[in-house]
Each structure stands twice: as structure tokens, then as C-alpha cells.
Design a protein around this nucleic acid. Structure first.
Lengths: 208, 208
DNA sequence: TGTAACCCGTACACCAGTGTACGAGTTCTG
DNA sequence: CAGAACTCGTACACTGGTGTACGGGTTACA
């Protein structure tokens, strides 16, 4: 008999997050799923678990072996994508001219966004809002700090609430993403467009 | 017997759109449904047909008597809401200073948006994109014309594609709506915030 | 090389929402 | 006031996705 209570090792894994003593092939499967989920959701925003498993080249039951349910899958995928993004964004130097820093931050965020967006949309439907906010905390805080400093230094307009600056920045990137997928603008133009729109809106008008 | 083929009058109505010879109570039911749908969807974005019928104070079967299926219901609701909006927006004078016209257009659109938004979100999921675009044609064209004139007259920046101006405008309003429901900004501040953000971004920088 | 860990197919129970069928009761309307 | 139009409850068939159960086959790893 496998074990007294019939709890398989796979079922056990769910509790322990990214388990410690996983076999190599198991880790590989998990990675395949985590990588394929964003792609599958991008192609079809309401892909079923079966669709995702198929896209990952993995049986549906294998997927359930790694993630207790759909929500857990989405959660883990989003967390993974954001973690990778964090690796890039964390390296961007934010001191110096706030304008330049914002520019750099947006440019990088934009390229990362394309990958995360599909997952994020699904997550917003299926995960509690609090959880999503929690995952964004780091990235959000970083940009917020930048905006606050920029306002203190008189570079960014002080009459706009920081939360609004954040919201508009997010939305501008999302708008750009939609315009790109709709084919109305070119991918390589997008970053410039975003920055070219936001900076004039955010910075204090001065004669230069 | 009711009639040879068993086609009820209600079933007949589906084809003829807003039927001509409707009884008074039928018209009333239809209106109640059309009015309640946005509210129900606002409270719960994936309300079922049963939920909507209940919210309208009407039996589910009555609803199906007026709309062949869920899609037809959403379609009709969106069409109705947009039609009402059109009644307001169509009266706004767009000649004269493009900046002022844009300001007026945004202010009105903003107040209308709150009502339409919930329906629109659902429609984007359940209706073909082409159909939605078709319904927006008039409103879209009006704003597009304004942007084009503004660019020609040197008021709006010519380096930003008109499609981008439209996209950003839409998104800014959506961002504001989200910020309001999230409680991060006050409803009455929203319009000013939108305008205060978009105008600096859209207009040519000049020393005044 | 043995064994635990893992993969993954089949089969099934379950649930919720959609749309149809029927028919009895109610309300307009001419 | 007669009959057509309309309301609306009950009941049901159908669909598609989720998650569980079982178990044989495969693979990593000590």
C-alpha cells in the first residue's frame, strides 16, 4: 500500500508551496506548466485547465498533481511571472533625475507587461483583489516612491494624487498593449508613445 | 389552440426587434429589464440571467420572452444605454476651441460612462468585437473628428496618432472609474482629474 | 536495481448556468 | 367581456468545466 491515509506525495506538495525535495522531472513539469499558462491564456482568456495542461504538453492529472485547483494555478503563475519581472525591475537605478528614472522604469515594465497581462486579467476575475494587490506591493511601492520623490523635487506635478499617477501609468501601458494587439500601433513604437504621453502630463510645465 | 405552429407571439417578437404592436405591460416589462440589467451587472459582473430577471422584478421566463438568449439581452442593453448616451453627447457643440470642446465632451462622457461601464465590460466578453465597435461608431467618430481638427489647427500634438489619443482618453476615463469605485478618489474630482491629465498630454507645449 | 515518486489516461460525481416545454393564471385592449 | 397577449412558475434536457478516484506504466535516484 502507498501509505496509510492514502495521501499521495503529490497531494502533499500542495501545502508546502514549491516543495523542497522534488524530483527533477517533477520540477520540470511544474516549470513547463508555469511557462505555458501565460501563453495559453493569451491565446484564449478563458482557457480551461484541460486546455492549459494540453498547452503545457502535460496531462491534466499531472497539473492537478502540482496545483490543487484552478485558483492555485493562476495564483502560482502570476506569482512566478511577477517574480521574474521583479528580477529585472529591481536592478533599475532609481536615483538621479526622476524623469529619466521613470522613463527607464516604464520602458522595462512595458516589455514585461506583455507577458504578464493575460495572466493578470484572468487573475482579476478569479483571485481575491487583496491577493493581487499583495503580489504587486513591491513593484507598486517602487514606482510610488519614485513619484513621491519627483513631486518633492518639483519635477512632477504636485496637484495630481500619487495614486492617480500610478493608475494612469498602469492604464497607459494597458492601453498600449491593447492597441498593439489590435494592430493599430507598432510594438516598437509603444514605449515611446507611452513615455511621450505621460511625461508631458506628469511633469510641471516649465519653459525650457 | 393558440396557433398552428406553436409559435407564440413572444417568440415572434425576437425577430422584429422592438416590436411595433406591443401591449403596454409588455413594453413596461422590457423597459424594466433594460433598466435593471446595468445595475445588476454592476453589482455582480457575472450575474446570471436568473439574477437579472430577479433584479428587474420579473420572471425569468418573461425575460426570455423578450430576449432570445443572454447575448441578445446584453446586446439590447448596451444598445439602449448607448442610445441614451448619444442623446446627451449629440447636443454638445464641438465647434470653437478644440480644447474646450474636448473638455465638455469628456465631462459628459464621464458621467455617462459610470452607467455604461458594467454592461460594456460584460459585452466585451460575450459579444463579438465587431458588434461592439459598430455600436460605438457614432461616438467614436465624433471624438475622432474633434481630435483631427485639433491637430490640424495646431492645438493638439500632431506626433501622437489619433487612434492613440482615443485609446488614452478611453482608458483615462476607465482608470478614473476604477479609482472611484476603489475609493481612492472622490467622484466629483474625477472629471477635473481626467481633463487635468489629458490636456497637458495632448496639447502642444507653448509658453503662455 | 529496487522502490518511491511521478506521469497521465479513463471514468465519474458534481455543479451551475442556459435554453425549452408546458400550462395555468392574469391583464390589457377593442 | 371575450379573446389575444402577456406573465411566470415548475420541470427538464443539455452543456461544459471542475475536481476526485483509481490504477497501470514510467522515471529518477540512492
Amino acid at each position: 500500500m502507498p501509505n496509510a491515509e492514502g495521501t499521495t506525495a503529490a497531494a502533499e506538495r500542495h501545502r508546502s508551496g514549491s516543495a523542497v525535495n522534488q524530483r527533477a522531472d517533477a520540477r520540470r513539469s511544474r516549470a513547463k506548466i508555469l511557462a505555458a499558462t501565460p501563453l495559453a491564456l493569451r491565446k484564449n482568456p478563458d482557457a480551461s485547465v484541460a486546455d492549459i495542461a494540453a498547452a503545457a504538453g502535460v496531462g491534466r492529472m499531472t497539473l492537478y498533481g502540482h496545483f490543487a485547483n484552478r485558483a492555485a494555478l493562476i495564483d502560482a503563475t502570476l506569482a512566478d511571472s511577477l517574480e521574474q519581472a521583479e528580477g529585472v525591475l529591481g536592478d533599475i537605478p532609481l536615483d538621479g533625475d526622476p524623469t529619466a528614472a521613470l522613463e527607464a522604469l516604464i520602458a522595462s515594465s512595458w516589455t514585461l507587461l506583455e507577458r504578464v497581462r493575460s495572466v493578470l486579467v484572468v487573475a482579476q476575475r478569479e483571485l481575491p483583489a487583496a491577493r493581487i494587490r499583495e503580489m504587486h506591493e513591491v513593484a507598486e511601492g517602487r514606482m510610488q516612491g519614485l513619484f513621491e520623490r519627483g513631486q518633492r523635487e518639483g519635477v512632477f506635478r504636485p496637484d495630481l494624487p500619487v495614486s492617480w499617477l500610478l493608475a494612469v501609468t498602469h492604464l497607459a501601458m494597458n492601453a498600449a498593449a491593447e492597441e498593439v494587439t489590435a494592430g493599430r500601433i507598432e510594438r516598437q513604437d509603444a514605449a515611446d508613445l507611452i513615455i511621450g504621453t505621460l511625461l508631458p502630463a506628469f511633469t510641471v510645465r516649465e519653459m525650457r
